[in-house]
Nucleic acid binder design. Structure first.
Length: 194
DNA sequence: TACGTGATCACG
DNA sequence: GTGATCACGTAA
């Protein structure tokens, strides 16, 4: 069952980031279905320096200021498309970066998109999973309740004791906010990014 | 450890 | 307009 709109709003972004672990992210692009279980997330809030929305609204981060339940997709280092889930109410620009998936659906399609013959590590990183699932900036602002990109709850429960908190990756520019333990992973899962 | 890659943003 | 920077991935 797709996550309800209420899942994405009126709750702490860190709570939502934790609860996204074990949920299934799926895309239907060019009529091809691909998807995987979320095993690594990072929370970002407009209140802290790690977040694209910290300094206010810009052309790139505009969708972050909209109501939760949409995709925020941007290009990183000129090469990698990055997929985030927008959360919180209109004007409260929170988002969660999806950093790694465990492949579930359309594994051959994902291998083709990655140009490899094995499923090994095809979705273990934020730039890789978007490529495997066919996600790019055309999906920026897309509503997750529609049938192009969505997140489902298939009843998989991740115990609190199986969740690891750590500092977020690659945001040294955020100063002391880079130390916030806002990265969530499923303990021992082999699909976590390196 | 180094660097490709091109959009973005803060300057003026 | 311009230049530094960047929520990565791969090669070495």
């Amino acid at each position: 069952m797709k996550l309800a709109e209420s899942f994405y709003i009126r709750r702490n972004v860190t709570t939502i980031a934790r609860q996204l672990l074990g949920k299934i992210l799926t895309t239907k692009i060019n009529n091809l279905i691909t998807g995987g279980m979320i095993v690594e997330t990072e929370a970002y809030s407009y209140k802290e320096r790690g977040c694209h929305a910290f300094k206010g609204r810009t052309q790139r981060n505009e969708v972050m200021f909209e109501q939760g339940g949409k995709a925020y997709v941007y290009l990183c280092y000129g090469v990698h498309e990055m997929f985030n889930v927008v959360t919180n109410k209109t004007g409260k620009a929170d988002a969660i970066l999806i950093r790694a998936l465990e492949p579930v659906s359309g594994i051959e399609i994902m291998q083709d998109r990655m140009g490899v013959n094995s499923s090994k590590r095809i979705t273990s990183g934020p730039g890789k999973l978007t490529r495997a699932l066919g996600i790019d900036r055309k999906l920026n602002g897309e509503e997750l309740k529609k049938n192009i990109i969505w997140i489902e709850d298939k009843g998989i429960q991740i115990k609190q004791t199986a969740i690891v908190r750590s500092a977020r990756i690659g945001i040294d520019y955020a100063g002391e906010d880079a130390l916030l333990p806002w990265r969530f992973t499923i303990k021992g899962n082999k699909w976590i990014s390196k």
